[in-house]
Computed example of a mutant assay.
Amino acid sequence: MSKINIILVCSAGMSTSMIVSNMKKVVAQKNMDVYIEAIPSTEAENYMETNDVDVLLLGPQVRYLENRLKESTKDTGIRVDVINPQHYGTLNGEKILQQALDLIKEK
């Protein structure tokens, strides 16, 4: 499998940047070929147009974007989901990474 590109979408970014850091630690421990980045919700649609994205995970605070982003990605193969609020609140990078990987398996 080629590199997996996971993008987290947030509003402010502080918690999400910590989650990205925790996810990257898990990726390094498991020697996985995964790219993870957090972007503000205002840049999500433009970002997807110009970058390779496999999974778009939304922070619970921007869950209102879920339907719109699913609609705009329906023909692209990009998987969109909202991060489990409990995993988000505890900054559980391992569980959030697993959520993204499970979405890819569903393709």
Rank of each mutant, 00 (worst) to 15 (best):
M1N: 12
M1W: 09
M1Y: 13
S2Y: 14
K3D: 11
I4H: 11
I6Y: 03
I6R: 02
I7L: 00
I7N: 00
I7R: 00
L8Y: 05
V9D: 03
C10V: 05
C10Y: 04
S11C: 07
S11D: 14
A12D: 05
A12Q: 09
A12K: 11
G13H: 06
G13L: 06
T16M: 07
T16S: 10
S17W: 06
M18N: 09
M18D: 09
I19T: 03
V20L: 00
S21Y: 08
S21P: 04
K24F: 01
K24G: 01
K25Y: 14
V26I: 14
V26L: 02
V26E: 07
V27T: 09
V27Q: 06
V27Y: 05
A28H: 04
A28M: 13
A28S: 15
Q29M: 12
Q29H: 12
Q29Y: 10
K30M: 10
K30E: 09
K30I: 06
K30C: 04
N31W: 12
M32Q: 10
D33H: 11
V34L: 04
Y35G: 14
I36F: 03
I36A: 02
E37H: 07
A38E: 09
A38P: 01
I39R: 00
P40Y: 05
P40N: 10
S41R: 15
S41V: 08
T42P: 02
T42I: 12
E43M: 14
E43P: 11
E43L: 12
E45S: 14
E45Q: 14
E45Y: 11
Y47D: 07
M48S: 03
E49V: 14
E49R: 12
E49W: 11
E49Y: 10
T50M: 15
T50E: 13
T50W: 13
V53L: 03
D54W: 04
D54S: 01
L56M: 10
L56Y: 00
L56P: 10
L56F: 08
L58E: 02
L58V: 03
G59W: 01
G59D: 00
P60W: 05
Q61D: 07
Q61H: 04
Q61Y: 02
V62K: 07
V62N: 04
R63Q: 13
Y64S: 08
Y64M: 09
Y64E: 03
L65T: 08
N67R: 10
N67T: 12
R68Q: 09
R68C: 08
L69D: 10
L69K: 06
K70P: 01
E71L: 12
E71Q: 11
S72C: 12
S72H: 12
K74I: 13
K74A: 11
D75W: 05
T76Q: 04
T76E: 03
T76A: 06
I78N: 05
I78W: 00
R79D: 11
R79V: 14
V80I: 03
V82D: 07
I83R: 04
N84H: 06
N84Q: 09
N84A: 05
P85C: 07
Q86T: 14
Q86R: 11
Q86L: 08
Q86S: 15
Q86C: 12
Y88V: 04
Y88K: 03
G89V: 10
T90W: 09
L91S: 15
N92M: 01
G93F: 02
E94V: 09
K95E: 15
I96P: 13
I96G: 08
I96M: 10
L97M: 10
Q98S: 15
Q98T: 09
Q98N: 14
Q99M: 04
L101G: 12
L103M: 13
I104P: 06
E106R: 08
E106I: 03
K107W: 12
